[in-house]
C-alpha cells in the first residue's frame, strides 16, 4: 500500500487513462472498495475517484427511459420524482444495499463491478433489461448488465474500461417490477438469496412479457428465461407460478457457506421469485 495514490480525474478520457494501469481501481461510492483495501483483499496502486467527472452523478430521462450516472448513490435513486414509480423494483433493490450511510455513497456501478453473486441491485437491473454504457480506450460501448460479471470478483471490463451510465429502457403502461431478498436480520446483511421480476401486462391483465433474475444462487446473478416464460400468457395463476418456481429451482446452482446452505438457497429463491412476481403483477395492474 506504500505506493497507493488517489486520483480524481475530471473527464472520462483522463479516467480511462488512469484506469489503464495494471492495478488501478475505480472508486465511486467506495463502500466495497475501501473495505477491501483496508483488509488487504485489494491492493491497488491507484484509486481513481470517478465522482468528479461531469454526468457520472445524476438521473435523466432519455427516449422514454432513464439514464443513471454510474456513480449516483442509492439515496438519489429513491429521491428521484418518477424513477421509483416506473422502476420500483430497481429502486427498492438498490435501496437494500447497506445502511442509510451506505445509501449515501454506494452506486449501481460499484454494486455491479464488485462482482458479488449476492449484489442486490444486479438481479433487478437484469430483470429490467438494463444496459450499461462503458467508456474505454477505444471509445464507448453498450452492454447488457448480465454480461458484465463473469464470476465472483471478476468482470468482463477491459483495462481502462469503466461504466459511465446505466440505461433503463422505456416502459409501457401496466408494467412494473419488484425485488425481494432474504436476509437473517431485517437490514445490514448480504442476501442469502434474491429474486427480481419485471413484467408487463396487456389491458386484460395477461402477462405479455416477464423477466426473472436471481441473486446469490450461482457464481453470478442469473437471468432465468424459463421462469419468465412460464408467466407469459398467464394471469399468474397458481399453475403458472408453480411452473415458474420449478424453473427457478432448476436454474439455481448455489454454494453452501456461512450465509446459508445450497438446499435452503434453492428453496428460498423460488419463494422469493413467487412473491416478487405477485408484487410486480399487483403493481403493474395499478399502473395507468
Amino acid at each position: 500500500m506504500a505506493q497507493l495514490s488517489y486520483l480524481s480525474p475530471s473527464s472520462v478520457d483522463e479516467a480511462v487513462k488512469a484506469l489503464s494501469g495494471a492495478s488501478a481501481r475505480a472508486l465511486s461510492g467506495g463502500t466495497d472498495l475501501l473495505v477491501q483495501v483496508r483488509s488487504g483483499r485489494a491492493k491497488p496502486d491507484h484509486i481513481v475517484d470517478l465522482k468528479r467527472i461531469p454526468g457520472l452523478i445524476g438521473i435523466r430521462s432519455e427516449n422514454g427511459g432513464f439514464v443513471i450516472g454510474s456513480a449516483t448513490c442509492g439515496a438519489m435513486l429513491s429521491e428521484h420524482p418518477t424513477l421509483s414509480k416506473i422502476w420500483p423494483g430497481v429502486v427498492e433493490a438498490a435501496n437494500l444495499i447497506g445502511s442509510t450511510q451506505v445509501q449515501g455513497r454506494a452506486s449501481l456501478a460499484g454494486n455491479l463491478c464488485n462482482a458479488s453473486p449476492a449484489a442486490d441491485s444486479v438481479p433487478a437491473m437484469i430483470a429490467a433489461r438494463a444496459t450499461c454504457v462503458i467508456a474505454g480506450p477505444s471509445g464507448t460501448r453498450e452492454a447488457a448488465v448480465e454480461t458484465i460479471v463473469t464470476g465472483p470478483g471478476k468482470t468482463s471490463l477491459g483495462a481502462g474500461e469503466f461504466i459511465i451510465a446505466f440505461k433503463l429502457p422505456p416502459r409501457g403502461s401496466k408494467a412494473s417490477d419488484a425485488y425481494l431478498r432474504l436476509i437473517p436480520r431485517t437490514e445490514m446483511d448480504i442476501a442469502v438469496a434474491g429474486a427480481a421480476v419485471s413484467l408487463a401486462l396487456d389491458a386484460d391483465g395477461v402477462c405479455t412479457s416477464a423477466f426473472v433474475a436471481l441473486g446469490a444462487v450461482a457464481p453470478t446473478a442469473l437471468l432465468v428465461a424459463d421462469a419468465g416464460q412460464a408467466l407469459v400468457g398467464t394471469r399468474l395463476e397458481a399453475a403458472a407460478l408453480t411452473q415458474m418456481e420449478e424453473a427457478v429451482r432448476a436454474a439455481c446452482q448455489p454454494i453452501s457457506d456461512k450465509r446459508g446452505t445450497a438446499d435452503y438457497r434453492t428453496k428460498i429463491a423460488a419463494v422469493l421469485a413467487h412473491r416478487a412476481a405477485v408484487i410486480a403483477w399487483n403493481r403493474a395492474k395499478e399502473q395507468a
Partner: peptide, 11 residues
Amino acid sequence: LVCSCLVLAAE
C-alpha cells in the same frame, strides 16, 4: 449521512 471510515480523506 455517511460512514467516515468509508470515505477517503481526499474525497
